[in-house]
């Protein structure tokens, strides 16, 4: 028999106060790209509580090893780090089999992207800057990489992004889809960053800062950071108010 927590219910209403608003003029590009009309609220149906499923055989063995997955004739430059953590939902339940994709600049702050104009910082021939993985049955994920460098960008004339790693997360339902950025504990560029400041909620910002995790350091090899992720949780379908056609 299926227990209530094994069913697929509708997601809790999204708390938008913990997310950035669409229009945040301090981050200039948002001005012409933000919706101005109210979002239309929709009760969840199968369209929202279902989502794409991925299997481990779609990923390669080095996909979560950014130190080796683009290495050509040596190792990438920079501080070697392990990044790991758990994906849970708002109920605190581990989220297994979530697809996590990450991308980042190299140790000099340069992206391997044809549109990157920070050309005084060198491309690292041994670093691609992207990886991906699935969480295990406990919601755990990990990947190995080098710590990205901060870099300048055109917003105000002399803005610099704090070091960060981009994350894309697809859990079970399409309505849980999330993209975010992970920052590093102690980075002095965090508080002044216009993109960080698009979030008007201190607790939310703290949740984006990975903590140095001494317990996970590998001796004579790499430091480690811990970054836990929370995706939307769903209600148990107890009596009524269930989603038609859903388990």
């Amino acid at each position: 028999m299926t227990t209530p927590t094994e069913q697929f219910g509708e997601f809790y209403q999204r708390d938008r106060t913990i997310h950035p608003a669409a229009y945040t003029p301090g981050y200039k590009t948002s001005v012409l790209r933000s919706n101005q009309k109210a979002l239309i609220s929709l009760s969840n149906s199968l369209s929202d509580i279902t989502g794409p499923q991925f299997s481990p055989d779609e990923l390669g063995p080095l996909d979560n090893d950014l130190i080796l997955n683009y290495a050509k004739d040596g190792m990438p430059n920079g501080e070697r780090i392990l990044v790991h953590g758990f994906v849970r939902d708002e109920n605190g339940k581990p989220v297994p089999n979530a697809l996590i994709e990450v991308w980042q600049a190299n140790a000099s702050g340069r992206y391997r992207h044809k549109n990157d104009r920070y050309v005084v910082a060198p491309i690292d021939p041994n670093f691609g800057g992207c990886g991906r993985m699935l969480t295990d049955k406990n919601g755990y994920y990990f990947f190995r990489t080098v710590k990205p460098g901060p870099y300048p960008w055109r917003n105000n004339i002399n803005d610099w992004r704090p070091a960060h790693i981009h994350y894309s997360i697809q859990a079970s339902g399409f309505a849980q889809r999330l993209i975010t950025q992970m920052y590093f504990q102690g980075d002095p560029l965090i508080p002044g960053c216009p993109i960080v400041r698009s979030i008007n909620n201190e607790e939310s910002v703290r949740g984006l800062i990975a903590q140095l995790d001494r317990n996970a350091f590998a001796a004579m090899d790499s430091m480690a950071y811990r970054f836990d992720i929370v995706v939307r949780g769903s209600r148990a379908t107890l009596f009524e108010n269930y989603v038609q056609g859903a388990k």
Partner: peptide
């Protein structure tokens, strides 16, 4: 309840992570 992790923009280099071929390089088999 835990609070959902906050969203941040995908940024200009989203292709590196989600569509590396469009960023201009080949890395994953699939």
């Amino acid at each position: 309840y835990l609070k959902e992790t906050a969203s941040q923009t995908a940024g200009p280099y989203v292709h590196i992570g989600l569509a590396p071929k469009q960023a201009g390089f080949d890395i994953f088999e699939n």
